[in-house]
């Protein structure tokens, strides 16, 4: 249980301020012709920084992330106002594959592995978009296997038959094969056992430290995200309401208990209780999925 405790001590300082790698300003997005999904989102990610994007279910985290990878048009949504820049490029004028080649890639909510492909084939697809050479793909595969040794054991089996944790690792590994500078993750902990979540976040933190990989991660499981993040952004009803360092955010325990819960059951206000709920949810999911 202690693995998930909100905490203390392990907070890491944000890297020195510099030009943001990602800058989202005044973002407004709609689905269809008129269903407003986002009203006003401001967000920045600096090079080498881990930013946690928090908010309850339906607050607009996923839509924000899809807008950042310019994936909304593929789901009949669009950015109706505001701007998104990645490394000086106007994201809204770039295709998702062009963004991936620039170093911005996303691990979708629900993992979205290619289920009929083997784990290794899944990973290789990450190298195809940037036209990696055969040698580069072999090198990158070894790197991914070094980060997630379990994938090496499973490399020949179908991704659809792998466990939830292995699928999440496959999805992350596949994204790493694009050689990103900013990795965007949507709910990586969803439906996974706490230990698996720990292992995945630990691997991400190591990548951040060793390779300076910037990470933007949306999580309902705020407790675990907060332990690794440098900075926190909170979304509420399609509007960003908090934007501060993770350390400061953690100190304000009132805010904490408010945003750490999953969904709308937050009225209890007791952080401990909320954590307990989360624990139950993740245990339940761990049993029910795969």
């Amino acid at each position: 249980m202690s693995a998930l405790r909100v905490n203390t001590g392990e907070g890491r300082e944000p890297s020195p301020a510099s030009e943001p790698l990602l800058r989202v300003a005044g973002l407004e997005a709609v689905y269809g012709a008129s269903i407003a999904a986002l009203h006003h989102i401001d967000l920045t990610v600096r090079p080498g920084e881990i930013v946690a994007l928090l908010g309850s279910n339906g607050a607009g985290k996923t839509t924000t992330l899809k807008a950042i990878s310019n994936l909304l048009p593929a789901q009949r949504g669009k950015v109706s106002r505001g701007e998104i820049h990645f490394d000086g490029h106007d994201v809204l004028k770039k295709s998702p594959s062009a963004l991936a080649r620039l170093g911005l890639v996303q691990v979708l909510e629900g993992r979205h592995c290619f289920r009929t492909l083997s784990v290794e084939e899944n990973l290789i697809t990450g190298g195809l978009g940037r036209s990696s050479s055969r040698r580069e793909i072999a090198e990158d595969l070894e790197k991914v296997y070094a980060i997630f040794p379990r994938l090496k054991e499973k490399r020949k089996s179908r991704a659809g038959l792998a466990s939830g944790g292995e699928q999440q690792m496959t999805a992350i590994g596949r994204a790493l094969m694009t050689r990103p500078r900013l990795l965007v993750l949507d709910e990586p902990s969803m439906g996974l056992a706490p230990l698996t979540v720990q292992a995945i976040f630990k691997a991400l933190a190591e990548l951040n430290e060793s390779a300076g990989l910037a990470i933007l991660v949306a999580e309902q499981n705020a407790a675990v995200a907060l332990r690794f993040a440098h900075r926190v952004a909170v979304i509420e009803n399609g509007t960003s309401v908090v934007n501060e360092s993770a350390a400061e955010f953690r100190r304000r325990s009132d805010v904490q208990s408010f945003y750490l819960g999953g969904g709308a059951t937050i009225a209890s206000g007791e952080a401990g209780e909320v954590l307990l709920q989360q624990q139950q949810i993740s245990n339940k999911s761990a049993h029910s999925t795969f």
Binding site: S69, L71, A74, Q75, S95, P96, S97, L99, A100, R101, V105, Q106, V107, L108, H112, C113, F114, R115, T116, L117, E121, N122, I124, T125, G126, L128, G129, R130, R174, A175, T178
Partner: peptide, 24 residues
């Protein structure tokens, strides 16, 4: 072939293929 692998990926999950940078 690579194109064949990309084809199977797109056929399996088009949205994921888009997100991972395959040139649809």
């Amino acid at each position: 072939t690579r194109t064949g692998l990309a084809f199977r990926a797109v056929a399996d999950d088009t949205f994921a293929a888009l997100a991972v940078g395959l040139r649809l």
